[in-house]
Design a protein around this nucleic acid. Structure first.
Length: 471
RNA sequence: GGCGAUGUGGCCGAGUGGUUAGGCAACGGUCUGCAAAACCGUCCACAGCAGUUCGAUUCUGCUCGUCGCCUCCA
Protein backbone atom coordinates (compact mmCIF):
# COMPACT_ATOMS: atom_id res chain seq x y z
CA UNK A 1 0.00 0.00 0.00
CA UNK A 2 1.36 3.38 -0.96
CA UNK A 3 0.48 6.91 0.04
CA UNK A 4 1.57 10.31 -1.15
CA UNK A 5 3.39 11.82 1.81
CA UNK A 6 3.31 15.61 2.02
CA UNK A 7 6.50 15.54 4.08
CA UNK A 8 8.58 14.03 1.27
CA UNK A 9 6.32 14.95 -1.66
CA UNK A 10 6.58 11.39 -2.80
CA UNK A 11 4.47 8.32 -2.94
CA UNK A 12 5.82 5.89 -0.38
CA UNK A 13 5.18 2.34 0.72
CA UNK A 14 3.17 2.39 3.93
CA UNK A 15 4.90 0.65 6.83
CA UNK A 16 3.19 1.05 10.19
CA UNK A 17 5.26 1.47 13.33
CA UNK A 18 3.66 -1.60 14.83
CA UNK A 19 2.77 -4.41 12.40
CA UNK A 20 -0.95 -4.71 11.77
CA UNK A 21 -1.82 -1.53 13.65
CA UNK A 22 -2.34 2.02 12.48
CA UNK A 23 -2.43 5.10 14.64
CA UNK A 24 -4.30 7.82 12.81
CA UNK A 25 -4.88 11.43 13.78
CA UNK A 26 -7.37 13.47 11.79
CA UNK A 27 -7.88 17.17 12.35
CA UNK A 28 -11.49 17.71 13.31
CA UNK A 29 -13.85 20.67 13.21
CA UNK A 30 -13.81 23.98 14.97
CA UNK A 31 -17.32 23.95 16.31
CA UNK A 32 -18.41 27.54 15.82
CA UNK A 33 -20.87 26.82 13.00
CA UNK A 34 -22.31 24.00 10.92
CA UNK A 35 -19.66 22.16 8.95
CA UNK A 36 -19.81 22.71 5.19
CA UNK A 37 -19.47 20.15 2.44
CA UNK A 38 -15.82 21.07 1.94
CA UNK A 39 -15.18 20.00 5.51
CA UNK A 40 -17.04 16.81 4.81
CA UNK A 41 -15.00 16.11 1.75
CA UNK A 42 -12.04 15.82 4.07
CA UNK A 43 -13.91 13.74 6.63
CA UNK A 44 -15.23 11.41 3.94
CA UNK A 45 -11.70 11.00 2.59
CA UNK A 46 -10.44 10.18 6.07
CA UNK A 47 -13.28 7.73 6.50
CA UNK A 48 -12.38 6.05 3.24
CA UNK A 49 -8.78 5.80 4.36
CA UNK A 50 -9.83 4.38 7.70
CA UNK A 51 -12.20 1.86 6.13
CA UNK A 52 -9.68 0.77 3.56
CA UNK A 53 -6.97 0.27 6.16
CA UNK A 54 -9.40 -1.91 8.09
CA UNK A 55 -10.37 -3.76 4.93
CA UNK A 56 -6.69 -4.54 4.43
CA UNK A 57 -6.53 -6.01 7.91
CA UNK A 58 -5.14 -3.18 9.99
CA UNK A 59 -6.45 -2.39 13.40
CA UNK A 60 -7.02 1.35 13.29
CA UNK A 61 -6.98 3.71 16.23
CA UNK A 62 -8.32 7.01 14.97
CA UNK A 63 -8.41 10.28 16.85
CA UNK A 64 -10.48 13.20 15.67
CA UNK A 65 -10.22 16.29 17.81
CA UNK A 66 -12.89 18.91 18.35
CA UNK A 67 -11.61 22.45 18.68
CA UNK A 68 -14.05 23.91 21.17
CA UNK A 69 -12.14 27.01 22.17
CA UNK A 70 -10.50 29.47 19.76
CA UNK A 71 -10.84 33.03 18.51
CA UNK A 72 -14.02 32.65 16.49
CA UNK A 73 -15.80 30.71 19.21
CA UNK A 74 -14.86 33.32 21.77
CA UNK A 75 -15.97 36.17 19.57
CA UNK A 76 -19.26 34.59 18.61
CA UNK A 77 -20.18 33.36 22.06
CA UNK A 78 -19.53 36.76 23.59
CA UNK A 79 -21.57 38.40 20.86
CA UNK A 80 -24.38 35.93 21.57
CA UNK A 81 -24.07 36.54 25.28
CA UNK A 82 -23.67 32.89 26.24
CA UNK A 83 -20.91 30.83 27.82
CA UNK A 84 -18.65 29.48 25.11
CA UNK A 85 -19.35 25.88 26.08
CA UNK A 86 -23.04 26.57 25.75
CA UNK A 87 -22.40 28.18 22.40
CA UNK A 88 -20.53 25.21 20.91
CA UNK A 89 -22.87 22.53 22.20
CA UNK A 90 -25.46 22.57 19.40
CA UNK A 91 -22.74 22.62 16.76
CA UNK A 92 -21.03 19.63 18.31
CA UNK A 93 -24.32 17.75 18.29
CA UNK A 94 -24.96 18.79 14.70
CA UNK A 95 -21.51 17.63 13.70
CA UNK A 96 -22.08 14.13 15.02
CA UNK A 97 -25.49 14.00 13.37
CA UNK A 98 -23.93 14.97 10.05
CA UNK A 99 -21.22 12.33 10.36
CA UNK A 100 -23.88 9.73 10.91
CA UNK A 101 -25.92 10.82 7.91
CA UNK A 102 -22.86 10.50 5.71
CA UNK A 103 -22.20 7.05 7.19
CA UNK A 104 -18.79 8.09 8.46
CA UNK A 105 -17.54 5.51 10.93
CA UNK A 106 -16.98 6.88 14.41
CA UNK A 107 -13.36 7.45 15.37
CA UNK A 108 -12.14 5.69 18.49
CA UNK A 109 -11.54 9.01 20.23
CA UNK A 110 -13.04 12.49 19.96
CA UNK A 111 -10.99 14.55 22.40
CA UNK A 112 -11.92 18.17 22.99
CA UNK A 113 -9.39 20.92 23.40
CA UNK A 114 -10.96 22.10 26.64
CA UNK A 115 -10.44 18.65 28.16
CA UNK A 116 -6.72 18.63 27.43
CA UNK A 117 -5.50 21.95 28.75
CA UNK A 118 -3.39 20.18 31.40
CA UNK A 119 -1.55 18.30 28.69
CA UNK A 120 -0.96 21.48 26.71
CA UNK A 121 0.36 23.25 29.78
CA UNK A 122 2.76 20.41 30.45
CA UNK A 123 4.23 20.81 26.98
CA UNK A 124 4.37 24.60 27.18
CA UNK A 125 6.26 24.42 30.48
CA UNK A 126 8.73 22.01 28.98
CA UNK A 127 9.29 24.22 25.93
CA UNK A 128 9.81 27.25 28.19
CA UNK A 129 12.30 25.33 30.25
CA UNK A 130 14.21 24.27 27.15
CA UNK A 131 14.39 27.88 26.03
CA UNK A 132 12.42 27.15 22.88
CA UNK A 133 9.46 29.18 24.03
CA UNK A 134 9.58 32.68 25.46
CA UNK A 135 7.26 35.09 27.18
CA UNK A 136 6.42 38.37 25.51
CA UNK A 137 5.68 41.69 27.16
CA UNK A 138 1.93 41.15 27.26
CA UNK A 139 2.37 37.81 29.05
CA UNK A 140 1.69 35.57 26.08
CA UNK A 141 4.04 32.68 25.40
CA UNK A 142 5.43 32.13 21.92
CA UNK A 143 7.37 29.43 20.17
CA UNK A 144 10.67 30.64 18.76
CA UNK A 145 10.82 28.99 15.37
CA UNK A 146 14.52 29.66 14.92
CA UNK A 147 15.08 27.01 17.60
CA UNK A 148 13.64 24.41 15.26
CA UNK A 149 16.04 24.08 12.34
CA UNK A 150 13.75 22.20 9.96
CA UNK A 151 10.91 24.68 10.41
CA UNK A 152 9.15 25.14 7.08
CA UNK A 153 10.07 21.69 5.77
CA UNK A 154 6.54 20.32 5.62
CA UNK A 155 5.26 23.16 3.46
CA UNK A 156 8.59 23.59 1.66
CA UNK A 157 8.72 27.14 2.82
CA UNK A 158 11.84 29.13 3.39
CA UNK A 159 11.16 31.00 6.59
CA UNK A 160 13.35 34.02 5.93
CA UNK A 161 11.58 34.71 2.63
CA UNK A 162 8.24 34.20 4.21
CA UNK A 163 8.77 36.79 6.88
CA UNK A 164 9.87 39.50 4.49
CA UNK A 165 6.92 38.81 2.20
CA UNK A 166 4.28 38.73 4.88
CA UNK A 167 1.58 41.29 4.38
CA UNK A 168 0.94 41.74 8.05
CA UNK A 169 3.04 44.45 9.59
CA UNK A 170 5.46 42.94 12.02
CA UNK A 171 5.00 45.64 14.60
CA UNK A 172 1.45 44.51 15.21
CA UNK A 173 2.85 41.62 17.16
CA UNK A 174 4.39 41.27 20.55
CA UNK A 175 6.50 38.42 19.30
CA UNK A 176 10.12 38.42 18.17
CA UNK A 177 9.46 37.12 14.69
CA UNK A 178 6.30 37.29 12.62
CA UNK A 179 6.32 33.52 12.29
CA UNK A 180 6.60 32.72 15.96
CA UNK A 181 3.28 31.38 17.08
CA UNK A 182 1.37 31.53 20.34
CA UNK A 183 1.41 28.61 22.73
CA UNK A 184 -0.43 30.51 25.43
CA UNK A 185 -2.40 33.68 24.90
CA UNK A 186 -2.59 36.07 27.84
CA UNK A 187 -6.12 37.10 28.72
CA UNK A 188 -7.39 40.46 27.57
CA UNK A 189 -10.81 42.05 27.85
CA UNK A 190 -12.00 40.81 24.50
CA UNK A 191 -11.70 37.25 25.84
CA UNK A 192 -14.42 37.93 28.40
CA UNK A 193 -15.30 34.83 30.39
CA UNK A 194 -12.95 32.59 28.46
CA UNK A 195 -9.76 31.97 30.44
CA UNK A 196 -7.86 29.51 32.58
CA UNK A 197 -6.26 30.98 35.69
CA UNK A 198 -5.15 27.91 37.64
CA UNK A 199 -1.73 27.73 36.02
CA UNK A 200 0.02 30.41 38.02
CA UNK A 201 3.34 30.22 36.24
CA UNK A 202 1.67 30.76 32.84
CA UNK A 203 -0.73 33.42 34.01
CA UNK A 204 -4.41 33.96 33.27
CA UNK A 205 -5.04 33.09 29.65
CA UNK A 206 -5.88 30.35 27.19
CA UNK A 207 -3.99 27.93 25.00
CA UNK A 208 -2.96 28.80 21.46
CA UNK A 209 -4.56 26.85 18.70
CA UNK A 210 -1.70 24.69 17.46
CA UNK A 211 -0.71 23.21 20.80
CA UNK A 212 -4.01 21.38 21.23
CA UNK A 213 -3.33 18.86 18.48
CA UNK A 214 0.14 18.16 19.80
CA UNK A 215 -1.23 17.57 23.29
CA UNK A 216 -4.24 15.50 22.25
CA UNK A 217 -2.38 13.27 19.83
CA UNK A 218 0.29 12.69 22.45
CA UNK A 219 -2.25 11.88 25.16
CA UNK A 220 -3.99 9.23 23.09
CA UNK A 221 -1.56 8.00 20.44
CA UNK A 222 1.79 8.76 22.08
CA UNK A 223 4.76 10.84 20.98
CA UNK A 224 4.90 9.23 17.55
CA UNK A 225 2.22 7.83 15.32
CA UNK A 226 1.66 6.67 11.75
CA UNK A 227 -0.65 8.95 9.81
CA UNK A 228 -1.83 12.50 10.24
CA UNK A 229 -4.55 13.87 7.94
CA UNK A 230 -6.21 17.17 7.29
CA UNK A 231 -7.06 19.66 4.60
CA UNK A 232 -4.25 21.26 2.61
CA UNK A 233 -4.83 24.59 4.28
CA UNK A 234 -3.55 23.05 7.48
CA UNK A 235 -0.15 22.23 6.07
CA UNK A 236 1.13 25.63 7.00
CA UNK A 237 1.30 26.80 9.62
CA UNK A 238 -0.83 24.42 11.69
CA UNK A 239 0.77 21.08 10.93
CA UNK A 240 4.23 22.57 10.70
CA UNK A 241 3.73 24.03 14.16
CA UNK A 242 2.53 20.72 15.51
CA UNK A 243 5.73 19.12 14.30
CA UNK A 244 7.82 21.86 15.86
CA UNK A 245 6.08 21.60 19.23
CA UNK A 246 5.86 17.84 19.46
CA UNK A 247 9.35 17.06 18.24
CA UNK A 248 10.95 19.74 20.39
CA UNK A 249 9.07 18.31 23.35
CA UNK A 250 9.65 14.59 22.82
CA UNK A 251 12.83 14.51 20.80
CA UNK A 252 11.18 11.89 18.57
CA UNK A 253 9.77 11.91 15.10
CA UNK A 254 6.16 13.08 15.38
CA UNK A 255 4.42 11.58 12.33
CA UNK A 256 5.57 9.25 9.56
CA UNK A 257 2.94 9.95 6.89
CA UNK A 258 1.14 13.23 6.27
CA UNK A 259 -1.91 12.92 4.01
CA UNK A 260 -3.71 16.09 2.95
CA UNK A 261 -6.95 16.40 1.05
CA UNK A 262 -7.35 19.15 -1.49
CA UNK A 263 -10.12 21.68 -1.28
CA UNK A 264 -13.57 21.50 -2.71
CA UNK A 265 -14.77 24.36 -4.86
CA UNK A 266 -18.34 25.16 -5.77
CA UNK A 267 -18.98 25.78 -9.46
CA UNK A 268 -15.25 26.42 -9.95
CA UNK A 269 -14.93 29.00 -7.22
CA UNK A 270 -13.86 28.99 -3.65
CA UNK A 271 -16.71 28.45 -1.27
CA UNK A 272 -17.30 31.47 0.91
CA UNK A 273 -20.20 33.11 2.62
CA UNK A 274 -19.65 36.40 0.85
CA UNK A 275 -19.88 34.72 -2.56
CA UNK A 276 -23.13 33.06 -1.54
CA UNK A 277 -21.90 29.62 -2.57
CA UNK A 278 -21.37 28.31 0.92
CA UNK A 279 -23.06 24.92 1.23
CA UNK A 280 -23.63 22.85 4.34
CA UNK A 281 -24.74 19.24 4.36
CA UNK A 282 -28.04 20.45 5.76
CA UNK A 283 -28.58 22.67 2.73
CA UNK A 284 -28.38 19.65 0.45
CA UNK A 285 -30.70 17.51 2.53
CA UNK A 286 -33.36 20.23 2.58
CA UNK A 287 -35.16 21.06 -0.70
CA UNK A 288 -35.48 24.68 0.37
CA UNK A 289 -31.84 24.92 1.32
CA UNK A 290 -30.21 24.89 -2.12
CA UNK A 291 -30.69 26.43 -5.55
CA UNK A 292 -31.73 23.20 -7.26
CA UNK A 293 -34.72 23.07 -4.92
CA UNK A 294 -34.56 19.38 -4.21
CA UNK A 295 -33.34 17.12 -1.47
CA UNK A 296 -30.43 14.78 -2.06
CA UNK A 297 -29.90 11.34 -0.64
CA UNK A 298 -26.98 11.62 1.81
CA UNK A 299 -25.45 8.55 0.24
CA UNK A 300 -25.40 10.28 -3.13
CA UNK A 301 -23.57 13.16 -1.50
CA UNK A 302 -21.14 10.72 0.06
CA UNK A 303 -20.57 9.01 -3.25
CA UNK A 304 -19.99 12.34 -4.92
CA UNK A 305 -17.44 13.46 -2.33
CA UNK A 306 -15.81 10.06 -2.44
CA UNK A 307 -15.51 9.64 -6.16
CA UNK A 308 -13.06 12.46 -6.83
CA UNK A 309 -9.51 11.64 -5.82
CA UNK A 310 -8.59 13.29 -2.55
CA UNK A 311 -5.35 14.80 -3.79
CA UNK A 312 -6.89 17.05 -6.40
CA UNK A 313 -9.23 19.94 -6.13
CA UNK A 314 -12.82 18.93 -6.51
CA UNK A 315 -15.35 21.00 -8.35
CA UNK A 316 -18.73 20.57 -6.72
CA UNK A 317 -21.79 21.03 -8.94
CA UNK A 318 -25.44 20.23 -8.47
CA UNK A 319 -25.46 18.73 -11.93
CA UNK A 320 -22.71 16.37 -10.83
CA UNK A 321 -24.84 15.27 -7.93
CA UNK A 322 -27.63 14.27 -10.30
CA UNK A 323 -25.18 12.30 -12.43
CA UNK A 324 -23.79 10.54 -9.40
CA UNK A 325 -27.30 9.68 -8.34
CA UNK A 326 -27.81 7.85 -11.64
CA UNK A 327 -24.49 6.07 -11.30
CA UNK A 328 -25.41 4.79 -7.86
CA UNK A 329 -28.78 3.63 -9.13
CA UNK A 330 -27.00 1.53 -11.71
CA UNK A 331 -25.28 -0.39 -8.94
CA UNK A 332 -28.41 -0.74 -6.88
CA UNK A 333 -30.31 -2.00 -9.94
CA UNK A 334 -27.71 -4.71 -10.42
CA UNK A 335 -27.99 -5.81 -6.82
CA UNK A 336 -31.76 -5.83 -6.95
CA UNK A 337 -31.62 -8.00 -10.02
CA UNK A 338 -28.93 -10.33 -8.67
CA UNK A 339 -30.72 -10.73 -5.39
CA UNK A 340 -33.58 -12.49 -7.16
CA UNK A 341 -31.29 -15.17 -8.56
CA UNK A 342 -30.40 -17.78 -6.01
CA UNK A 343 -28.93 -20.54 -8.13
CA UNK A 344 -27.13 -20.62 -11.45
CA UNK A 345 -23.87 -19.87 -13.17
CA UNK A 346 -20.97 -18.99 -10.87
CA UNK A 347 -19.65 -15.43 -10.77
CA UNK A 348 -16.56 -16.28 -8.73
CA UNK A 349 -14.24 -15.44 -11.61
CA UNK A 350 -15.69 -11.94 -11.93
CA UNK A 351 -15.59 -11.38 -8.19
CA UNK A 352 -11.96 -12.40 -7.94
CA UNK A 353 -10.88 -10.32 -10.90
CA UNK A 354 -12.73 -7.26 -9.62
CA UNK A 355 -11.48 -7.60 -6.06
CA UNK A 356 -7.89 -7.84 -7.29
CA UNK A 357 -8.27 -4.72 -9.39
CA UNK A 358 -10.04 -2.85 -6.62
CA UNK A 359 -7.21 -3.59 -4.21
CA UNK A 360 -4.51 -2.84 -6.74
CA UNK A 361 -5.89 0.63 -7.36
CA UNK A 362 -6.80 1.46 -3.80
CA UNK A 363 -3.32 0.36 -2.73
CA UNK A 364 -2.07 3.01 -5.13
CA UNK A 365 -2.69 6.04 -2.93
CA UNK A 366 -6.44 5.35 -2.82
CA UNK A 367 -6.89 5.74 -6.57
CA UNK A 368 -10.64 5.71 -6.24
CA UNK A 369 -11.56 6.53 -9.85
CA UNK A 370 -9.81 3.41 -11.08
CA UNK A 371 -11.21 1.34 -8.25
CA UNK A 372 -14.72 2.50 -9.09
CA UNK A 373 -14.13 1.84 -12.78
CA UNK A 374 -13.30 -1.77 -11.91
CA UNK A 375 -16.54 -1.99 -9.96
CA UNK A 376 -18.62 -0.56 -12.80
CA UNK A 377 -17.02 -3.00 -15.19
CA UNK A 378 -18.11 -5.70 -12.79
CA UNK A 379 -21.67 -4.36 -13.03
CA UNK A 380 -21.60 -4.69 -16.80
CA UNK A 381 -20.04 -8.16 -16.70
CA UNK A 382 -22.56 -9.51 -14.22
CA UNK A 383 -25.46 -8.01 -16.15
CA UNK A 384 -24.22 -9.69 -19.29
CA UNK A 385 -23.99 -12.99 -17.53
CA UNK A 386 -27.51 -12.57 -16.19
CA UNK A 387 -28.73 -11.75 -19.66
CA UNK A 388 -27.37 -15.15 -20.73
CA UNK A 389 -29.05 -17.09 -17.94
CA UNK A 390 -29.50 -17.49 -14.20
CA UNK A 391 -26.48 -16.89 -11.98
CA UNK A 392 -25.54 -17.34 -8.36
CA UNK A 393 -26.75 -13.88 -7.41
CA UNK A 394 -26.07 -14.34 -3.74
CA UNK A 395 -22.35 -14.16 -4.43
CA UNK A 396 -22.81 -10.82 -6.15
CA UNK A 397 -24.62 -9.38 -3.17
CA UNK A 398 -22.04 -10.78 -0.78
CA UNK A 399 -19.20 -9.23 -2.76
CA UNK A 400 -20.86 -5.84 -2.80
CA UNK A 401 -21.39 -5.99 0.91
CA UNK A 402 -17.66 -6.65 1.23
CA UNK A 403 -16.81 -3.68 -1.00
CA UNK A 404 -19.32 -1.52 0.78
CA UNK A 405 -17.34 -1.93 3.99
CA UNK A 406 -14.87 0.34 2.21
CA UNK A 407 -17.18 2.62 0.26
CA UNK A 408 -19.72 2.96 3.05
CA UNK A 409 -22.65 3.62 0.73
CA UNK A 410 -25.10 1.44 2.64
CA UNK A 411 -26.18 -0.33 -0.51
CA UNK A 412 -27.66 -3.14 1.53
CA UNK A 413 -30.18 -0.72 2.95
CA UNK A 414 -31.24 0.35 -0.51
CA UNK A 415 -32.29 -3.21 -1.30
CA UNK A 416 -34.62 -3.45 1.64
CA UNK A 417 -37.51 -1.78 -0.07
CA UNK A 418 -39.90 -2.78 2.71
CA UNK A 419 -43.46 -4.03 2.57
CA UNK A 420 -45.98 -2.18 0.45
CA UNK A 421 -49.33 -0.88 1.57
CA UNK A 422 -52.21 -3.24 0.93
CA UNK A 423 -53.96 -0.92 -1.51
CA UNK A 424 -50.75 -0.50 -3.49
CA UNK A 425 -50.37 -4.27 -3.69
CA UNK A 426 -53.94 -4.44 -4.97
CA UNK A 427 -53.22 -1.82 -7.63
CA UNK A 428 -50.21 -3.78 -8.82
CA UNK A 429 -52.35 -6.91 -9.07
CA UNK A 430 -55.02 -5.01 -10.91
CA UNK A 431 -52.43 -3.70 -13.31
CA UNK A 432 -51.15 -7.19 -13.97
CA UNK A 433 -54.65 -8.30 -14.80
CA UNK A 434 -55.15 -5.30 -17.07
CA UNK A 435 -51.92 -6.06 -18.90
CA UNK A 436 -52.96 -9.66 -19.37
CA UNK A 437 -56.23 -8.42 -20.84
CA UNK A 438 -54.21 -6.00 -23.00
CA UNK A 439 -55.97 -3.08 -21.39
CA UNK A 440 -52.87 -0.93 -21.58
CA UNK A 441 -54.66 2.34 -20.96
CA UNK A 442 -55.65 1.15 -17.48
CA UNK A 443 -52.25 -0.43 -16.93
CA UNK A 444 -50.40 2.80 -17.72
CA UNK A 445 -52.82 4.77 -15.63
CA UNK A 446 -51.99 2.65 -12.59
CA UNK A 447 -48.28 2.86 -13.26
CA UNK A 448 -48.45 6.65 -13.39
CA UNK A 449 -50.56 6.76 -10.30
CA UNK A 450 -47.99 4.75 -8.36
CA UNK A 451 -45.14 6.79 -9.78
CA UNK A 452 -46.78 9.88 -8.32
CA UNK A 453 -46.62 8.09 -4.96
CA UNK A 454 -42.93 7.38 -5.41
CA UNK A 455 -43.24 3.76 -6.52
CA UNK A 456 -41.49 2.84 -9.76
CA UNK A 457 -42.65 -0.34 -11.51
CA UNK A 458 -40.50 -2.41 -13.84
CA UNK A 459 -41.94 -5.26 -15.88
CA UNK A 460 -39.40 -8.03 -16.22
CA UNK A 461 -39.60 -11.54 -17.66
CA UNK A 462 -39.64 -12.75 -14.05
CA UNK A 463 -42.59 -10.54 -13.14
CA UNK A 464 -43.09 -7.05 -11.74
CA UNK A 465 -40.30 -5.44 -9.80
CA UNK A 466 -40.83 -2.25 -7.84
CA UNK A 467 -38.61 0.30 -6.16
CA UNK A 468 -38.96 3.63 -4.50
CA UNK A 469 -37.96 6.63 -6.57
CA UNK A 470 -35.22 8.92 -5.31
CA UNK A 471 -36.16 11.83 -3.07
C1' G B 1 2.72 42.39 -3.07
C1' G B 2 5.87 37.70 -1.87
C1' C B 3 6.04 32.34 -2.31
C1' G B 4 3.78 27.98 -4.33
C1' A B 5 0.35 24.69 -6.80
C1' U B 6 -2.78 23.53 -10.83
C1' G B 7 -5.41 23.58 -15.81
C1' U B 8 -6.82 16.50 -20.14
C1' G B 9 -13.47 15.56 -24.04
C1' G B 10 -20.34 17.30 -20.09
C1' C B 11 -17.97 15.09 -15.13
C1' C B 12 -14.00 12.12 -12.55
C1' G B 13 -9.52 10.87 -14.17
C1' A B 14 -4.71 7.51 -16.14
C1' G B 15 -0.78 8.36 -19.22
C1' U B 16 2.89 8.94 -23.06
C1' G B 17 7.67 12.59 -27.47
C1' G B 18 4.70 9.41 -32.68
C1' U B 19 -0.20 3.74 -31.71
C1' U B 20 -8.48 4.37 -29.24
C1' A B 21 -6.62 4.70 -21.55
C1' G B 22 -10.69 3.66 -18.42
C1' G B 23 -15.21 4.85 -15.70
C1' C B 24 -19.68 7.99 -15.02
C1' A B 25 -23.26 11.02 -17.41
C1' A B 26 -25.58 12.30 -22.08
C1' C B 27 -27.36 10.84 -26.80
C1' G B 28 -28.80 6.92 -30.54
C1' G B 29 -30.11 1.70 -31.37
C1' U B 30 -31.90 -3.32 -29.72
C1' C B 31 -35.40 -5.39 -26.38
C1' U B 32 -40.47 -4.06 -24.43
C1' G B 33 -47.74 -3.32 -25.76
C1' C B 34 -45.33 1.38 -24.06
C1' A B 35 -41.85 2.19 -20.41
C1' A B 36 -38.04 0.94 -16.88
C1' A B 37 -33.85 -2.04 -16.39
C1' A B 38 -30.24 -4.41 -19.36
C1' C B 39 -27.13 -4.88 -23.62
C1' C B 40 -24.82 -2.58 -28.05
C1' G B 41 -23.07 1.87 -30.33
C1' U B 42 -21.63 7.24 -30.56
C1' C B 43 -19.09 11.23 -28.26
C1' C B 44 -11.50 11.08 -30.58
C1' A B 45 -9.69 15.72 -25.36
C1' C B 46 -5.20 17.42 -23.46
C1' A B 47 -6.12 26.33 -21.34
C1' G B 48 -3.88 29.93 -25.18
C1' C B 49 0.42 31.65 -27.99
C1' A B 50 5.30 30.91 -29.55
C1' G B 51 9.75 27.72 -29.68
C1' U B 52 12.74 22.89 -29.76
C1' U B 53 11.78 18.44 -32.84
C1' C B 54 10.82 14.70 -38.74
C1' G B 55 6.71 14.74 -35.04
C1' A B 56 4.31 17.48 -28.71
C1' U B 57 -1.09 16.64 -24.91
C1' U B 58 3.78 14.93 -23.15
C1' C B 59 10.12 19.24 -23.39
C1' U B 60 11.14 25.03 -23.06
C1' G B 61 9.35 30.12 -22.65
C1' C B 62 5.49 33.59 -22.20
C1' U B 63 0.25 34.68 -21.38
C1' C B 64 -4.48 33.60 -19.22
C1' G B 65 -7.81 31.09 -15.67
C1' U B 66 -8.50 28.82 -10.89
C1' C B 67 -6.66 27.76 -6.14
C1' G B 68 -3.42 27.63 -1.75
C1' C B 69 -0.02 29.73 1.93
C1' C B 70 1.88 34.35 3.90
C1' U B 71 -3.65 36.26 9.58
C1' C B 72 -8.44 32.09 11.64
C1' C B 73 -9.91 28.22 8.00
C1' A B 74 -11.12 20.89 5.76
Amino acid sequence: MQFFNTLTRQQEEFVPMEPGKVKLYTCGPTVHDFAHIGNFRTYVFEDLLRRYLRYRGYQVTQVMNLTDVEDKIIRKSIAAGVHFKEYTKPYIEAFFEDLKRLNIQPAEHYPRATEHVDGMVEMIRDLLQKGIAYRSEDGSIYYNITKFPSYGQLAHICVSELVSGARVAQDEYEKDSACDFALWKAWDEADGHVYWDQYEDLGKGRPGWHIECSAMSRAILGDSFDIHCGGVDNIFPHHQNEIAQSEAFSGKKFVNYWLHSEHLQVESYKMSKSKGNFITLRDLLDPQGNPSRRAYDPMVIRFSLLSASYGSRMNFKYEGLQQDEKALERIVALLRRAQEQTAGESVDDLVEKTRAEFIRHMDNNLLITEALAALFNFVTDVNKRMDAGPINGQKVVEFWNEIDEVLGLNLKEKLQTGPLDEDIEKLIEERQAARKAKNFARSDEIRNQLLAQGIVLEDTPQGVRWKRSSP
